[in-house]
Simulated assay, not measured.
Amino acid sequence: MLHKTLPLIAAGMIATTPAFAQTDIPFTLDWRFEGPSAPYFLAIDNGHFADAGLDVEISAGEGSLDAIPKVATGAFPIGFADINSLIRFLDQNPGAPVTAVMMIYDSPPFSIVGRKSLGINGIEDLEGSTLGAPPPDGAWAQFPILAAVNGIDASTITVEPVGFPTREPSLAEGTVDSVTGFNFSSYLSAARLGVPEDDLTTILFADHGVKLYGNAIIVNTDYAAANPEIVTAFLGAVVDGVRDALADPAAGAAAVIARNPAGDVDLETRRLQMALDANIATVYALENGMGDIDPARMAEALEQMTIVYDFQNAPDASLYFTDAYLPPAEERSLAQ
C-alpha cells in the first residue's frame, strides 16, 4: 500500500469539523450525468451520504482536465478524474494540492471498438486497417502503449483524425474499420446508429497488457488533511453506492435519468452494467475490496507511461495516490 503521512490536527480543528456533522460537500464529476455516475446518485437517494453526515451536491464536468484543476484550486474539495491525467498534471504542477484517494476504475475504459465485417475481430487485425481517433481522446493518447506492449507496427495503420461527434458515425458508415474510445460509450453509440452488435468487437487495453489505472476519486489535499474523517466517510458512502448499483443497475440508471431527463434509462442501464462488469467490479476489486491499488502494478503503469509522456520530474507514486483515507478493506467489500 502507498501511504502519505497525515499531519497532526489540532483538537480545536477536530471540534469544528466533526466527521458526522451535516457537512456540505460539492463533488465534481469528469463528465455528464450518465450510467457510470449512478453510484454517487444512489448514495444520495439511498441515504448513504446522509447517514455519513454529508450533504453532497454533484456537478457535471467537461473532462478530467476540467475536474482536476477544480479540485486543486479548492473550488471542489472532492472530484472524479482519470489518474493518468492527474499524474501529468502533478508532474507539470509540482506541489499542487490534489491526489487520488480511491480507485474506481480499477480497469480503465480505454478501448478500440471495431467491426468484424470490416476485418477487425481482435487486436491482431489492427495492422493494415483504418483507425478513427479523435486527437483529444484518452484512449488514443494511450494507444502507443497498446501498440508497444503487443508488438503492433503502428506505421501500417491509417489513422483518421475524426471528431467526437463523427467518431461512431464514421464506424457505422464504414469509413473507418475501428475507433478509439471508452468501452461503455463507443460500443453503445455505434449500436444505436444501427451497427449490429454481433458485428462489433471491443479490444479493451487492460486485456492486452496495458497496466494503467483509470478514474479515481481525487481530493484537495489541504481539505483532506484538515478533514480526514469526512473524506473517509465520503468514500465509505461511495462503496455503498457501488454495491447498490451492482444489486440493481436499472435503479442506478433511473437515479441518473432523474437528473438528466433527456437521457435514455435503458441505454444508461446498459452503460452502467458495462462499467460495473469491465471497469469497477474487477477480479482485483472483488478479491481485495474496491478502492486500493497494487503498488507493483502502479510501478509498471508509470513505466508504461514513459512511452507516451516525458516526465519533467522523477515519477513518485506516493504523489498520485494515497490509501490513507480509505475505509478498512472489509468495509470496501463488493460482496452482496
Rank of each mutant, 00 (worst) to 15 (best):
residue 143 F to N: 01
residue 206 A to Q: 10
residue 73 T to Y: 06
residue 63 G to H: 10
residue 31 W to V: 03
residue 76 F to N: 10
residue 135 P to V: 08
residue 25 I to M: 09
residue 35 G to S: 14
residue 327 P to K: 11
residue 211 K to Y: 07
residue 234 F to S: 00
residue 150 N to T: 12
residue 158 T to M: 06
residue 331 E to G: 06
residue 49 F to S: 03
residue 181 G to R: 06
residue 126 L to P: 10
residue 38 A to S: 15
residue 29 L to K: 02
residue 313 N to M: 12
residue 105 Y to K: 08
residue 247 A to Q: 13
residue 265 V to G: 03
residue 290 M to A: 15
residue 201 T to S: 11
residue 149 V to T: 10
residue 199 D to I: 08
residue 291 G to D: 06
residue 1 M to Q: 12
residue 44 I to P: 01
residue 192 R to W: 01
residue 159 V to E: 05
residue 41 F to P: 06
residue 172 A to N: 14
residue 299 A to S: 15
residue 201 T to N: 12
residue 70 K to G: 05
residue 144 P to F: 08
residue 301 A to N: 09
residue 42 L to P: 10
residue 26 P to G: 03
residue 205 F to M: 08
residue 101 V to Q: 04
residue 104 I to K: 04
residue 164 F to L: 13
residue 244 D to L: 12
residue 85 S to K: 01
residue 51 D to M: 03
residue 57 E to N: 11
residue 108 P to T: 09
residue 63 G to V: 05
residue 149 V to N: 06
residue 287 E to L: 04
residue 222 D to V: 12
residue 203 I to H: 09
residue 52 A to D: 03
residue 243 R to P: 09
residue 69 P to F: 09
residue 239 V to P: 10
residue 250 A to S: 08
residue 11 A to K: 12
residue 132 G to N: 06
residue 144 P to G: 11
residue 156 T to K: 15
residue 74 G to E: 04
residue 315 P to C: 13
residue 274 M to H: 03
residue 190 A to K: 00
residue 293 I to N: 03
residue 272 L to P: 04
residue 149 V to G: 05
residue 83 I to F: 00
residue 264 D to M: 02
residue 95 G to R: 09
residue 322 T to V: 05
residue 3 H to G: 01
residue 168 E to L: 12
residue 200 L to Y: 00
residue 244 D to R: 14
residue 317 A to C: 08
residue 111 S to T: 11
residue 157 I to Y: 09
residue 194 G to P: 08
residue 232 T to P: 02
residue 248 D to R: 02
residue 29 L to F: 15
residue 249 P to D: 11
residue 153 D to A: 06
residue 184 F to S: 12
residue 78 I to Y: 00
residue 22 Q to G: 05
residue 314 A to D: 15
residue 219 V to Q: 02
residue 281 A to N: 13
residue 247 A to T: 05
residue 280 I to D: 11
residue 25 I to Y: 00
residue 78 I to L: 15
residue 8 L to Q: 12
residue 336 Q to D: 14
residue 72 A to P: 10
residue 233 A to S: 14
residue 33 F to K: 02
residue 133 A to M: 13
residue 231 V to G: 02
residue 219 V to R: 00
